[in-house]
Amino acid sequence: MPNVLAIQGLTYKRNQKLILKNIDLTLETGKIVGLLGENGAGKTTLMRLITGSAQGSGDIMVSDATTATARKAHVSFSEQLHGFNKNVKISRVVDFYQTVYSDFDLNRYHELADFLQLNGELKLLALSKGMREKLIIALTLARQTDLYLLDEPFGGIDSMSRKKIISSIIQWKPDNATMLISDHYVTEIAPILDEIVVVKDQTIAVHQKTDTIRSESGMDIEDYYESLYAGGVDHD
């Protein structure tokens, strides 16, 4: 299978502190990959480096695009909508996405909005944290791109809705697209993951297929992930 993402020798420092060092990572087309790690491990930073929102040293290629500008056309990132005035209606945010992203599929957005019970007439300031996250998921998945980066997308969403969204995420992902999801609800997302990538000690500590982990270690994904921090698994 061709690779949708290829990272080589990526290092990132900020405020004289090393956040990520010598990251090498390749992701195949069509996969759902869990990006796991403790708080502050660098998961969000890795996603920001892929989108070009943060500037590191090293090579990042998304679907043959190497420059940050070109990569942006191939990546849909769950950004937090901080650029909008809080008085803006959801429908206006959707108009914005439709105007600036040529790959934004309005019909798909409406399907997602119906599924997630989003009301376009509501203003951003009227949204609860969970509703805001649902809007971000809908906007991110309504684009038809090669790589989706979902950064802790389920925070603030009630457990019922969370399970419903997770179980339906496969239906929203285009067949040839790859989805990288960082999340703390490892048990809940594990069933849909093809692979996991664990960021630990400023680098990629593990990149494995979930089936391989289950068959070789005999553990479920959450136990395996927790064992990495207990030092119980040799993950070389």
């Binding site: 500008t69 901080h82 650029g83 914005f96 600036v100 992203y101």
Partner: peptide, 16 residues
């Protein structure tokens, strides 16, 4: 100024 540091705008695929 806000547009320069907000992901909402900077993620748009257009040359700087």
């Amino acid at each position: 100024e806000k547009a320069y540091t907000a992901d909402t705008f900077r993620l748009i695929p257009i040359e700087e």
